[in-house]
Computed example of a mutant assay.
Amino acid sequence: MRTTRHGAAERAAKRRRGIGLPVALPAVGVVVCLAAALLIGGGADVRRTADESVTAAPVLSGSPAVAADATTTPTQARVTSPAPSLRRTPTVSAAGKPPVASRSTPATTPRAPSSTPRAESMVSTASLAGRIKPAVRYRGVATAYAAGDGNGACLYGPAGDLMIAAMNHTDYESAKACGAYVRVRAANGAAITVRIVNECPLPCAPGQLDLSQQAFSRLANLSVGRLPITWTLLSPATPGTLSIRYKTGSSQYWCGIQVIGHRNPVATLELRTAKGWRKLNRTGYNYFLAPDGNGCGGAIRVTDIYGERLTINGIALKPDVAHPARVQFARH
């Protein structure tokens, strides 16, 4: 009868299992450690890559910066602080403010509205004026003379209105003052408007006006003799239009021309010729002369001290006749 030695075999198997277990356990431990190390290293690489990608990504102006959070995936993030703007910062000046481009604005000086001619003349300017200029107040003395019929050095002829005056030789300026209207004011407050039709020769001083007796008596008694005054150029509301007159003896070979009834002082007079406009010289007796007659009888262009030009056509070459021109200078 065979006897199975189960006990010995079991003991041998147990012994083999006992030997293998200590060997297997360290091997398993090594494998587990290696796996853990690989997992841990891989996780670190993943987190670093996520952080670098967030840091390296450009942040547009107005977008928040982000940082990885332990509770989020690499594609999730929480707001931590505002991101620096990529917008260009303007250059700062020494004063600490951004520079501003300069812009020039034309300066304007508005004219003060006024209902009086004198106030208007005080704010006017003229580039063609001689010694007597708009917006200038002149000082001098007033004297008186017997004006007769009102004719004088300006050769306007008899005057229907004797509110006239003779300008001193200096300010007369070779007839440039002829026809000018001036506002005269005395120290006592009395004021008059007169038209310049004559010249007061030396020793009349600059600023002096020799008034007709009719005009002087409006300011003070004739017995005063010399009266301190101030006066300014005026651009009055004169009625009517100006006229052109050829001097005695004028023809197509020689002519003298004067302007009558003009509101503002006349600066220049020109004649149209085949070569264009010809500027004539002015005499002390208030005529513009064309010694060779070139342009006489043709179109005439008159310019006042404010630069306004009036062109007059159709004036017949008839001496000693005042030809109405149907035009007038503007009021200033």
Rank of each mutant, 00 (worst) to 15 (best):
G293F: 04
P158E: 09
T91E: 12
A56F: 07
D45E: 14
T238Q: 05
G256P: 01
N264D: 10
N151D: 15
Y287N: 00
G249I: 06
A65G: 15
A107G: 15
N188I: 12
T71S: 12
S115H: 12
S53A: 15
L234F: 02
V197T: 09
L60I: 08
A190Q: 10
A220I: 14
G179S: 07
Y246M: 00
R326Q: 08
V92N: 08
L227T: 02
G157A: 01
R78F: 13
A177M: 03
G295A: 09
T49Y: 08
I312C: 00
G140D: 02
P228L: 06
H323K: 09
R218K: 13
G284V: 05
I132R: 00
R47L: 12
P265T: 05
G29M: 13
N151P: 03
L310C: 07
E199G: 05
L280Q: 01
R87K: 13
A322M: 08
A165P: 02
T49A: 14
R87S: 11
P98E: 04
F329D: 03
I312F: 01
Y181D: 06
L128H: 15
F288Y: 07
Q208Y: 13
G20I: 11
D149H: 05
V100R: 02
C255M: 03
W277F: 04
G140H: 03
V182T: 02
A215M: 02
K97D: 11
G96F: 04
S250G: 03
Y287I: 00
G7S: 11
P58G: 06
S127C: 04
L202P: 07
V79Q: 11
T268E: 14
T268N: 11
I315A: 06
L310A: 06
Q76H: 14
V136R: 04
S81F: 13
L60H: 13
G20P: 05
R78S: 10
G207N: 06
T108I: 14
P203W: 08
L202Y: 11
R118S: 13
A112I: 15
D149K: 07
P134Q: 03
R17V: 09
T241N: 07
S114Q: 08
G18Y: 08
T232Q: 10
V66A: 09
R278Y: 02
V54H: 13
G179K: 00
R87H: 10
R137C: 08
P22I: 09
V66N: 07
V184L: 01
A77K: 09
P84L: 07
I300N: 01
K176M: 04
